[in-house]
Nucleic acid binder design. Sequence first.
DNA 1: GGAAAACGGTATCAAAAGATACAAAGGGCT
DNA 2: AGCCCTTTGTATCTTTTGATACCGTTTTCC
Lengths: 210, 210
Amino acid sequence: MDTDKTYHARLNSIFEVALVEEINKSADFRVFNKNEQIITEGQYLKYLPIVLNGSIRVFQTYEDREILLYYVTPLKTCIMSLSACLFNNKSLSNAVCEADTGVLLIPSNYILDWQKKYDSWNRFIISAYRDRYDELLYSFNDAVFKNIDERAMAYLKNYTEENNTNKVPLSHQALAHELGTTRVVISRILKNFELEGKVILHRGDIELKK
Amino acid sequence: MDTDKTYHARLNSIFEVALVEEINKSADFRVFNKNEQIITEGQYLKYLPIVLNGSIRVFQTYEDREILLYYVTPLKTCIMSLSACLFNNKSLSNAVCEADTGVLLIPSNYILDWQKKYDSWNRFIISAYRDRYDELLYSFNDAVFKNIDERAMAYLKNYTEENNTNKVPLSHQALAHELGTTRVVISRILKNFELEGKVILHRGDIELKK
DNA sequence: GGAAAACGGTATCAAAAGATACAAAGGGCT
DNA sequence: AGCCCTTTGTATCTTTTGATACCGTTTTCC
């Protein structure tokens, strides 16, 4: 768990000093447990969450299906919450912790306030939207123009690069879910990758060979 | 073409009075011709466009393919331009007029300025991002979870509802492009729709039956 | 230890979608 | 009228993906 110090240092790396002070004054810090549901569809929100450590999975449900939107990782916020807060709408999505997660809760009335006072807050908010949009656009293009095996390999490569490892700790089922397909399809593809010498399969994780 | 009056009335419907005055003082109004390219990939932007009439198609190119992002319609802005302006990055997309189009050009230095002064501007900017995100999310889910015939029908229905007509003025080729597939596939699907009595096909447009 | 759940392998069949090729019709232009 | 380009119709073949079923192994939990 974070000490107060590292948590300050982190905020200072993206916000101006005066804003960090305001945050410390006005925001609550809360820790949620792994698998705890923070937000449920239909709920009104009074706080904008900023993750300090851990990770939150954000998804919608549609016709019994869970539609993964994104993960909120440290120093990021959740644009679905932002939209809901700002326009005082019901949340359209759910948020569940992937791990024990420390979150700053910004009371929603400060959002527009800070927009008016702090450039760094403005950039933070806009970047949040922009980054999610780019991410989604990328996924969309992949989904429309690429085959699943390419998408799967891209996912594996991306994961290993971002997390600086060569093992992706997902079951076939979980990977299928990430890509919006079914377990059998993923098993088939991964087996082919293994035969081609591109990966080594273990129970519960996939090892990417160089 | 718009007179000054209707153009004022339009801005007043979304912005506070003081902001409309600032816009009139600081922004350029320009008219572009149909098929004129306003923005090219790689270009730096000094202005944020707000469309007053007409329509702008925004797209990226990737491996010889044109990837349609969205259309900018009246009283909307272009979030790709916004991102480029705000972070002083090269534009990642192209913008071409679909029709003769009147555009307000906001010098980029005013964007953050107005964020600090006007609630309505804040909401305008955030809504712009939110709406595009929602739009793209919707398309993404369709692409991943639905068959092309469903997507095609959804497109037709959506078009006729939004434009209050029962004819969609697109060639099969153009519709294929909208949905990221090929002409033959669309022709096949539309022919089926016709046999099922759902549409009537004409050269250059598709008529949706009730 | 034993039952239940999660995980992974694999075969078979069906459906969806893409690729290619060719023909015919419509519409504009000289 | 004659030419050309765009649009549409359609057949054939292949590839990709999904659906279902069944089995064996590993893990988890009482």
